[in-house]
């Protein structure tokens, strides 16, 4: 029987064709935001005080080259979104914002670095609403891979 042979050989031909994987050197790894170290701040459920300054400290790294880092502090008084973290924090009851704290800032990372520790002073005005906030960290690498960490913090 010639026909089944042809049939099978064609299938094989097709699949060996598929297997020819391109050996590429493209980067497919996401950069890493590390807040595990003892000095890193804030962490999930951290607390910061109004009228004071804290230092945002986190270790950024990538297998190739880092791009840029951006932070976004916004209120979570309505519990609208959840953080990206496993641990949940005690939340205050839902409330309507009056003068919530909003800070959107991006920080440059010098070109060509594969590891960088962010140390940035952030002042929390005395006049803002206390309560539950999100502290979003967005980190890119040169290729455009982005890692997001959404931390829940409290401003008291």
């Amino acid at each position: 029987m010639k026909k089944p042979l042809l049939f099978i050989s064609l299938i094989l031909l097709f699949f060996t064709g598929c297997k020819k994987d391109s050996t590429s050197e493209i980067d497919t790894e996401y950069p890493v935001i590390n807040i595990e170290s003892a000095t890193a701040f804030p962490k999930q459920c951290s607390t910061v005080k109004r009228g004071e300054t804290f230092i945002f400290r986190a270790q950024m790294s990538d297998n190739t080259t880092l791009g840029s880092v951006s932070i976004d502090i916004h209120h979570n008084f309505d519990h609208h979104t959840h953080s990206t973290e496993l641990a949940t924090c005690d939340m205050e009851t839902v409330k309507t914002p009056v003068t919530p704290f909003l800070l959107i800032q991006s920080y440059p990372i010098a070109a060509g670095l594969s590891s960088y520790e962010v140390q940035q002073e952030i002042a929390v005005p005395a006049s803002v609403d206390p309560g539950d906030y999100h502290f979003m960290i967005r980190l890119t690498d040169k290729e455009g891979w982005q890692t997001i960490k959404g931390l829940s913090i409290k401003i008291i």
Partner: peptide
């Protein structure tokens, strides 16, 4: 039936995620 094809675009349009963040128009997003 075997149907191979080859396709070439000199100027394919696509949405490129860059390394930059924009806090002005982009509100801190990539």
């Amino acid at each position: 039936q075997l149907s191979p094809f080859y396709n070439y675009f000199p100027n394919y349009i696509y949405l490129n995620p860059t390394a930059a963040h924009d806090y002005f128009y982009g509100a801190g997003n990539q």
